[in-house]
Simulated assay, not measured.
Amino acid sequence: MIDIFVKDAKPAAEGPAEYFTGKVTITAPFNTTEPARVSGATVSFPAGARTAWHTHPLGQTLIVTEGQGWVQEWGDAARSINQGDIVWIRPGVKHWHGASATTSMTHIAIAEAEQGKVVDWLEHVSAEQYPQ
């Protein structure tokens, strides 16, 4: 059996304020069916918008499709990401990602569930932690 997730079949959703800073838009979310564990979505961040700190039990892949942004692992400096970049975040790594202060950024986010869990959300990225 083949499933096709038709573009725009599901309306875009605003990223919840408890997990995002700024008006983030989530489109084209998808979940596979067991035994597969993959899920993902296209996430658009206007300038200055970002995720909260979080982890993924089996890691996460980001494919930057537009713009420029940041990704940061806890304890390390933020790193610039740009259109065309592919980012692999290892399992359990505390991190955040989002747009730069002056440029929007869109990425496709892909992660696998472990025992039904894809992400553990943590605290928001502070203004001091966000690169200007």
Rank of each mutant, 00 (worst) to 15 (best):
K94W: 08
D85M: 08
A109F: 03
A99Q: 03
E73Q: 12
N82L: 07
G92I: 15
G84W: 04
H107R: 03
V93L: 14
V71K: 05
A77P: 01
T103M: 07
I108L: 09
I86Y: 03
E73K: 11
G98Y: 05
K94Q: 15
W88I: 13
I81W: 01
H95F: 06
H107W: 10
T102H: 09
P91Q: 03
V93E: 02
D85E: 09
P91L: 13
W74K: 06
D85A: 03
W96T: 10
I86D: 00
W88R: 13
D85H: 06
H107C: 11
A99D: 06
M105H: 04
D76V: 04
S104K: 14
H107F: 05
R79T: 10
R90P: 02
I108Y: 00
Q83F: 03
M105G: 02
A77I: 01
G75S: 11
N82W: 02
V87R: 09
K94P: 02
A109Y: 00
V71P: 04
G75N: 09
A101G: 12
T102V: 11
S100L: 05
K94V: 15
S100G: 07
V87I: 14
Q72F: 04
W96P: 02
A99S: 07
A99K: 02
S104D: 08
T103P: 01
S104Y: 12
H107L: 11
T106M: 04
E73L: 10
R90M: 07
H95E: 00
R90I: 05
S104L: 08
S104R: 10
T102I: 08
D76F: 11
K94E: 15
V87A: 15
W74E: 10
D76H: 11
A109E: 03
I108F: 02
V71R: 04
